[in-house]
């Protein structure tokens, strides 16, 4: 018997919008408040809300622990990769000027890639930490 029907239906209604808001914060970070750090935390918050309401096993189906743990170093790798790409194009480390034909576009691309790296690491770390604490069990 489920006594938390309203909670479950309500959560199913708002969960997609939380993820959509995370993507909005990520890609609109150039124009309004937001960016990789906030978007990563909001996306992680969506997974955590799902885990709280539907159980950790259900959450591990939509965000498998192995994927989450892969995301932790992957974001740093994307970030460093953007830096090294700048080096290979003959500029300084993390100088995005060579990424596109003109200055503005190159730096827009650079910021987008770097913010993606931040998003991946922050989201992965927060969810991985949550899983680690939850599956510890009461000793």
């Amino acid at each position: 018997m489920r006594l938390d029907l309203i909670l479950r239906v309500g959560a199913k209604l708002i969960l997609p919008f939380i993820l959509l808001f995370a993507l909005y914060v990520q890609f609109h970070g150039d124009y309004g408040p937001g960016g990789g750090f906030q978007a990563g935390v909001i996306a992680a918050g969506m997974v955590i809300l799902y885990a709280i309401i539907f159980g950790v096993h259900a959450a591990k189906r939509i965000a498998p622990p192995i994927m989450v743990e892969m995301m932790v170093p992957m974001g740093v790798a994307i970030f460093t990769g953007a830096g090294i790409a700048g080096l290979l194009m003959g500029n300084n480390f993390l100088d995005y000027t060579g990424f596109a034909h003109d200055y503005l576009h190159a730096h827009e691309w650079g910021i987008l890639i770097v913010e993606l790296g931040v998003l991946v690491t922050v989201c992965g770390t927060m969810v991985a930490m949550f899983y680690a604490f939850v599956q510890r069990g009461r000793s």
């Binding site: 960016g35 750090f37 935390v41 922050v122 927060m126 930490m129 680690a132 604490f133």
Partner: peptide
């Protein structure tokens, strides 16, 4: 401060893991 906040929660979690 924006980066410090996220680093702050990461280090807080590390401390809590040690407490556990």
């Amino acid at each position: 401060m924006l980066t410090a906040i996220v680093v702050g929660v990461a280090t807080l979690s590390l401390g809590l893991a040690l407490v556990v």
